[in-house]
């Protein structure tokens, strides 16, 4: 007879209604199937045990066995957290940077940060390279960097430092409070993450200009956190399933993200009267300039310097190959679907 399955309690940082709960569920389903029922994961939304921003503490303490979150949510404990997904953009996409994590030394740096420097009792992995995050939602058009001055804008993590440098006043609000804050005039522009999540919480009801393409959070991935003791006590094959399940879910997540994000973007335009723009070159280069100012302050910290050096080395080599190698996809798209792109 089969032994009782080992049940792990995993909480996400997302509300029950967010599309990312479905992403986390794909991970859970894969782990349960691959383990032949020896592992069961009890998946809970944000707030079920602890608040969205408290999952790191909870996993380290063993209040939760595992969590599905993003590193930027605990950057209050150490700013270096933000370098694992929401740091400066040297030219790498989320895919490039996830590859850095898995093959370019990022994983060891992350381990050093969480286990050695901070003394946290966790094992963390990154998965699902998120499409670059839109610059977000504005009531009026913004064309030049100077148009941004005085805006009260919502974002999180190092992106907050970035946009403050660009003359915006930044508020960091939990996702659920963004729309009420827009209605109240507490903020007048914001970004969250992607067309599906944005649409689900009603961004289109409070602003009609949606700006895609930005360097503020261009390479984020989900963070899968596990309590270290729980991991170490598992049979090696089960531990491998939990770890490699992240890689499996990453591919599955990409499929539903592509499907849903694109569909929601279409419907935001066709059904909700949203105007979709590309963020102007002027704003993008102002973002890079602002990063230039922030990077030296980050590098004052030796560990952050080490991480940034590692990322630069990786990007310099890998992205050279990526960009030199990649065919002009826009050309092909325009060839088959002419007149659609407005780049």
């Amino acid at each position: 007879t089969a032994a009782a399955p080992k049940v792990l309690k995993m909480q996400t940082s997302w509300p029950a209604s967010d599309i990312w709960m479905d992403f986390a569920r794909q991970y859970v389903e894969r782990v349960e199937k691959m383990s032949g029922g020896r592992l069961k994961i009890d998946l809970l939304p944000a707030g079920a045990v602890v608040k969205a921003f408290q999952v790191m503490d909870a996993v380290s303490d063993g209040v939760l066995d595992a969590a599905h979150s993003v590193p930027v949510y605990w950057y209050g404990k150490n700013k270096a957290a933000s370098l694992f997904g929401t740091g400066p953009v040297f030219g790498g996409s989320a895919t490039t940077m996830l590859a850095w994590f898995n093959g370019g030394g990022g994983r060891e740096l992350y381990r050093e940060l969480t286990q050695d420097i901070m003394g946290l009792n966790v094992v963390g992995l990154l998965g699902f390279p998120m499409p670059a995050q839109p610059f977000g939602w504005f009531k009026t058009e913004v064309n030049k960097a100077s148009d941004l001055k005085g805006f009260k804008y919502r974002t999180v993590g190092l992106a907050a430092d970035l946009l403050q440098k660009m003359g915006m006043s930044v508020a960091q609000l939990p996702g659920g409070e963004i729309v009420p804050a827009m209605e109240r005039g507490v903020i007048d522009a914001f970004e969250f993450n992607n067309p599906s999540s944005d649409r689900r919480f009603g961004a289109q009801d409070v602003a009609k200009n949606y700006y895609l393409s930005s360097y503020h959070q261009a390479s984020e991935s989900f963070e899968f956190l596990f309590n270290k003791d729980v991991m170490e006590d598992l049979d090696p094959d089960l531990r491998a399933i939990l770890e490699h399940g992240v890689e499996a879910a990453s591919t599955a997540n990409t499929a539903i993200a592509m499907d849903n994000y694109s569909k929601d973007l279409m419907e935001l335009q066709s059904k909700e009267g949203v105007t979709v723009h590309r963020t102007s070159k002027d704003i993008l280069s102002a973002q890079l300039k602002a990063w230039d100012e922030i990077i030296p302050t980050l590098e004052a910290d030796p560990f952050m310097k080490k991480v940034l050096d590692s990322q630069r080395t990786w990007v310099e080599r890998v992205v050279f190959y990526e960009l030199m190698n990649s065919p002009d996809l826009a050309l092909a798209y325009d060839h088959y679907f002419p007149g659609k792109l407005k780049l």
Binding site: V49, V50, K51, Q54, D57, A58, D61, G62, V63
Partner: peptide, 13 residues
């Protein structure tokens, strides 16, 4: 026992 951590967490909430 995880109740102790949970308790502190709830207090902080």
């Amino acid at each position: 026992n995880r109740i102790f951590d949970l308790f502190v967490n709830q207090t902080f909430s």
